[in-house]
Design a protein around this nucleic acid. Structure first.
Length: 554
RNA sequence: GCGCCCAUAGCUCAGCUGGAUAGAGUGUCGGACUACGAAUCCGAAGGUCGAAGGUUCGAAUCCUUCUGGGCGCGCCA
């Protein structure tokens, strides 16, 4: 619809230039937007005002010149008005909107998808928590946002891979192994001091118990490095399995789990340091190797090799990103907790140093979550190992409600997650509002069939019967959906889909309460059934993007 | 001290990359089920968009300063 208007507008501008009534050759990028107010028509453009400042002419004068030269050969316009300081308002013929439903129905599950991404290869990396303990509520938000961003990009024809980076190298892994070993010895009745810096959670004790069950007491007398390595590997593998399971129950499935260890095994870090050296981006200070991230706008340089000769996490992370690009991704999207925001400039420095454009990396920062129960904060301490895990939240609240709750805010605004509120199956919980709309539509279609109506196709209906203002409002909202998905993909903002779901559900509920779909008037019933069916399609497609189910009954 | 994020109705938040008279939900008050699902709907009330300047035809949106809150500022990850 919008494209048709842009075409008309361009034609008119061309004619104006040719006739010499407008002088400027620099045609500003034509922007047409859907209006908020009905009185302003369906679409409006500001080109006249933009041209006015360029050419120093009266904007309303320009607007009228443009309007005079519009050639509406297909007759899609009801009327065109000039309003306010120089807006051109377009009123489309109502019937045009209704005919758009044919496409919705035909495309069904694929309505809302587009070719925007042109199969460009994108990787979305998210969660990436250390396998040193179960995921908690803080990870959950990043998990859903990453998952839904991936869904949205896929819908826009990006070729998307979802990846989890396993930080399984470094001393926190040693610490994990040591923790489990100590608990193991403790369970075997050996008196030990359990240090503060070891992992405190009950899950460490459980793991130790598991090892006793499977392997008995054979590690009792030997505190060698090999021993610790065994405990580390056992614990990490087991914890990672738990993480995968919790994510799966949450509806989050990854295409790839990438191990930091393999970077070292394949000399990725070494090669990277060599490359940085060759390009002159590093310098020595004693045994320490510094990377000149300030060359790329960072506030200070960063260490990549420690005094003890070991590379830093940052060095590995650059090597990891280099590896991503070597695997052929055009764009890499990292989803991080907002507490890592200070890390952003140095990561951009990293990818630029390996020759990538800044645009090849996009970092989405997700603000932290406060967990509440009945409005009161739930005490959590990672250090003491006391926290509500993702698995517990999903078990208590359910997948759909918890996902939806995480998607109701812009990712960079704080989020309160109230367990009791999220659990409530009432109007206080927006997820059910939307799902109820879908269930209600299914119910209407069932009722219609019981009364002998077939589910109509576009050819079965008289489009002129869908002429109520609320019907047109519904249809216009449905029509907006594909652009909404595209905008959401470009801005990496999944919450827009959530708000759309609420809007559409609201329009539908209102329509339903005011008007009867299934009646004795066969023609009218068919037309309305068709509309309702289309609403169902769009709700379903939108919810699918969010990874939330669209139930036929509740 | 420096950097990033946030500040919009009593509360929780949107505001589509600068558009016209700033919108939802929730809460409060008042209404709607003998018809397709009341987990729904309709109506009322509710605002100096944190403050002050600036940019322009036009600012909640962009720039500067200030106030208040969150998070960072490791040779941790």
């Amino acid at each position: 619809m919008k494209q048709k208007l842009i075409h008309l507008l361009k034609e008119s501008l061309d004619i104006c230039f040719e006739r010499g009534v407008l002088e400027t050759r620099d045609i500003p990028s034509i922007e047409i937007e859907a209006t908020k107010e009905e009185a302003h028509g369906d679409y409006a453009t500001n080109v006249a005002m933009v041209l006015a400042s360029l050419m120093k002419m009266n904007p309303r004068k320009i607007a009228s010149l443009i309007v005079e030269n519009i050639l509406d050969n297909d007759g899609i316009l009801e009327k065109v008005e000039i309003a306010g300081p120089g807006f051109i308002n377009f009123f489309m013929k109502d019937i045009l909107w209704v005919t758009l439903l044919e496409e919705v129905n035909d495309r069904n599950d694929t309505y809302g998808t587009s070719a925007l991404g042109a199969n460009k290869r994108v990787q979305v990396e998210f969660v990436s928590a250390n396998p040193t303990g179960p995921l908690h509520i803080g990870h959950a938000r990043g998990a859903v946002i990453g998952d839904v961003i991936a869904n949205i990009l896929k819908a826009c024809s990006f070729s998307v891979s979802k990846e989890y980076y396993i930080n399984d190298a470094g001393n926190q892994m040693n610490n994990l192994g040591k923790s489990v070993l100590l608990r193991y010895l403790e369970l075997l009745g050996i008196h030990i001091e359990y240090p503060e810096e070891c992992y405190q959670g009950q899950y460490i004790v459980d793991l130790a118990g598991e090892i006793i069950e499977k392997y008995g007491t054979r590690y009792k007398d030997n505190g060698s490095d090999d021993n610790i390595r065994f405990f580390t590997e056992y614990a990490a593998a087991s914890i990672l399995d738990g993480i995968k399971k919790d994510l799966e129950d949450f509806g989050v499935v990854f295409d790839c789990f990438f191990s930091e260890k393999t970077l070292y095994q394949n000399n990725g870090v070494e090669k990277l340091l060599h490359e940085l050296g060759k390009k002159g981006y590093v310098y020595n200070d004693g045994a320490t190797l510094w990377f000149k991230t300030t060359d790329f706008g960072d506030e200070k340089d960063r260490v990549v090799v420690r005094e003890n000769g070991e590379p830093t996490y940052f060095a590995a992370d650059i090597a990891y990103h280099k590896n991503k690009y070597e695997r052929g991704f055009d764009t890499v999207i990292d989803i991080w907790g907002a507490d890592h925001h200070g890390y952003v400039p140095r990561m951009y420095a990293g990818i630029q140093a390996i020759g990538k454009d800044k645009g090849a990396l996009q970092v989405v920062l997700v603000q932290l979550v406060s967990l509440l129960r009945d409005g009161k904060p739930v005490a959590m301490s990672t250090r003491a190992g006391e926290f509500v895990t993702l698995g517990e939240v999903v078990a208590e609240v359910g997948k759909d409600a918890s996902r939806y709750n995480f998607l109701m805010r812009r990712s960079h605004s704080h989020l309160d997650f109230d367990l009791e509120l999220a659990k409530k199956q009432s109007n206080e919980n927006p997820v059910y509002y939307v799902q109820y709309a879908h269930a209600r539509i299914s119910s209407i279609l069932r009722t219609a069939q019981e009364r002998g109506y077939a589910i109509p196709e576009y050819k079965d209906i008289n489009v002129n019967l869908l002429n109520l203002p609320e019907e047109l409002a519904l249809i216009k909202t449905i029509d907006r959906f594909p652009e909404l998905v595209e905008g959401s993909a470009q801005a990496l903002e999944p919450h827009r889909i959530t708000f759309f779901c609420n809007d559409l559900a609201s329009l539908f509920h209102s329509y339903y309460n005011k008007n009867r779909v299934v009646s004795d008037d066969a023609e009218l019933t068919k037309a309305r059934l068709f509309l309702v069916k289309c609403i169902g399609i769009v709700l379903r497609n939108a919810l699918r993007l969010l990874g939330v189910s669209a139930p036929d009954r509740m």
